[in-house]
Design a protein around this nucleic acid. Structure first.
Lengths: 343, 343
DNA sequence: CTGTTAGCGCATTCAC
DNA sequence: GTGAATGCGCTAACAG
């Protein structure tokens, strides 16, 4: 393990907190009323251009910067939105977060990021902490119960990603389309029995994928066995390899790429050749080109989901109304190196 | 490309924003003054236990929850801290962010996450937007100039990760130790000429790594050539493979694992066998077990850096003083499958 | 167009 | 131990 930390130099210095210049000081300096200063910043068109300029100049000179908190208290709007994800370390989320952030930025909103560690209690706690500091919330792949989600939705504007609750705006990544392609792909390669390595039981995506695989498998007259991996992680995947192999299948579809990667590692450790004797397909397509062999995976655009969710939320905030929208983003199979004809 | 999005159900509903219960309503209900309600929540020991209980009961019944913004305006503290990173999609950062979040959570602080896209202008903008909403800031692998950083540090409590500015508290991951081990490892394998695939020019880590490699190489009497990759990304790494090969070296150390991964892919495309004819070492050790062959890498504990930075910042906030501390976290080499004796 | 007034919801002096 | 004022910094009517 890496270790050893040393510190040096301990000279303490008192913090010189820049005691904020207030609107009144600017008002005095510019020889106007406080409200005019306020207007100069929020509705300049209500003032004479020359007045605005004078105020702005005075403000600049004093180093005035509007106090966000005071403004928030007065207006009830603070321009923050919360984004909660189960596991920031899962490569599925960063692109989504990034896109969300970009979209929020376009409207001058700041994002609070919350990480729940896949833990519903932690998620509940975060929502509580965020509420009151944010104007709205995006819950991504929430692990909360329907009831808790509805409870929160009644408190503040809420948008869901990968959770399908009627009445609450939601963006869904429909694995169905990609899953069908994946199963068909395996069928054409001659596989007769496959395994689905499932994900978190309270995950909508997991339920959806499992159902889609079940349907597709039966329509192609393939046998299907479900092996639960519980958490979507590398180690979960590696841990269930024995269960997968003992199922007697020749191919597997995993809940997500990270799990698939764990499975891939486990197979390799047991000298099972991929794709020669076993085929593997992931989901999310977040590290397709990264593994060896390149992972065949079901691709989506998680970033689009993030962008859309924020966009939806911002719309709700500006309209002060909630549309019961349900966006569905489709997926498709990307074939790489982990699938081949059944041995 | 994935595509196709459809929306359905457009029934609009007005938002029923839960008009916050205020302290006054609770005061009335409990038959006390507003100040007592305030005290019941912030300094219960100043009140009779029975009074506190009565107030809390009334609050509970009304569903009162303290208004964070109002409290912040009054006290000047809002319990938020900002965390800014260059690229959340780079696997180096998520563990750091996660640890930071955990540490902040322990003290009931919320984290604003900012992503700069490796862009100093964006970074500056984010700092500006955050200032005023956060009590302090952590800049991770900042791409800003020393001057800008000092300017910001004079405005609000600031902690740096992987940036060494005297007078500003900082947490540094010292690649030096690991780099020396890496170069020695290559020397022992018989490599005589190596390449350093560099990272962002305004990155402290990059400068530090380059310098350490230079020193180590000369002490082992190895030739060194630096090939710039500009951005730490998979594609940057892949793009510089030709330059690496034409340098005539037999081994390379990359700025980070992601870059190394790109190099690995590029080498594979050019049918250069790793490690048989070319050895490769990454930095950060964030995806060692993920690539094939497993990437030999210089390991650190980025999560520890995140935790420490937050802890330092919180200490500054509670002391209202700034210690000129400089924490150094050491690193070490982890040998996996991408290094072997020089062909 | 601009100044005056009155809160936003809470924490915090003081008195009692 | 508790209540009554005052102010945090700003925005939003309402006048003029």
């Amino acid at each position: 393990m890496v270790s050893g930390s040393r510190a040096s130099e301990f000279q303490d210095t008192m913090i010189k907190r820049a005691k904020g210049v207030t609107i009144s000081q600017v008002a005095d300096a510019a020889g106007v009323a406080r409200s005019s200063v306020s207007r100069a910043f929020t509705r300049p068109d209500m003032l004479l251009p020359e007045t605005v300029e004078r105020i702005l100049k005075a403000a600049e000179a004093l180093g005035y910067v509007p106090n966000h908190t005071a403004r928030a208290l007065s207006t009830g709007r603070h321009g923050n939105i919360g984004l909660i994800v189960p596991d920031i370390a899962n490569p599925f989320f960063p692109p989504l977060i990034q896109a969300a952030q970009l979209e929020a930025d376009r409207s001058d909103f700041c994002i609070f990021l919350g990480n729940t560690e896949e833990n519903p209690k932690q998620e509940d706690k975060l929502v509580g902490r965020f509420a009151g500091q944010v104007e709205g919330l995006v819950l991504t792949s929430s692990r909360l119960s329907d009831e808790r989600i509805r409870a929160h939705a009644s408190q503040l504007p809420l948008v869901l990603i990968n959770r399908d609750l009627e009445g609450i705006p939601r963006v869904l990544i429909d694995s169905g389309s990609g899953v069908r392609q994946a199963v068909e792909h395996l069928a054409q390669l001659g596989h007769r029995k496959i395994v689905y390595v499932s994900g978190p039981s309270n995950s909508w995506s997991n339920k959806q994928r499992r159902a889609a695989i079940r349907t597709a498998a039966s329509s192609f007259r393939m046998e299907l066995e479900v092996v639960p991996a519980v958490l979507p992680s590398y180690s979960s995947g590696r841990n269930v390899v024995d269960a997968i192999l003992s199922a007697g299948a020749t191919a597997a579809i995993a809940f997500d790429d990270v799990t698939a990667q764990g499975v891939l590692a486990g197979l390799s450790e047991r000298k099972v050749a991929v794709p020669a004797t076993f085929s593997l397909i992931g989901c999310d397509d977040v590290l397709g080109a990264v593994t060896y062999p390149g992972l065949t995976s079901i691709s989506n655009r998680s970033n689009e989901a993030g962008r859309l969710a924020i966009s939806l939320l911002l719309e709700m905030l500006s309209n002060r109304s909630i549309r019961d929208v349900r966006y569905v983003l489709e997926t498709h199979l990307v074939v790489r190196g982990t699938t081949a004809a059944a041995g």
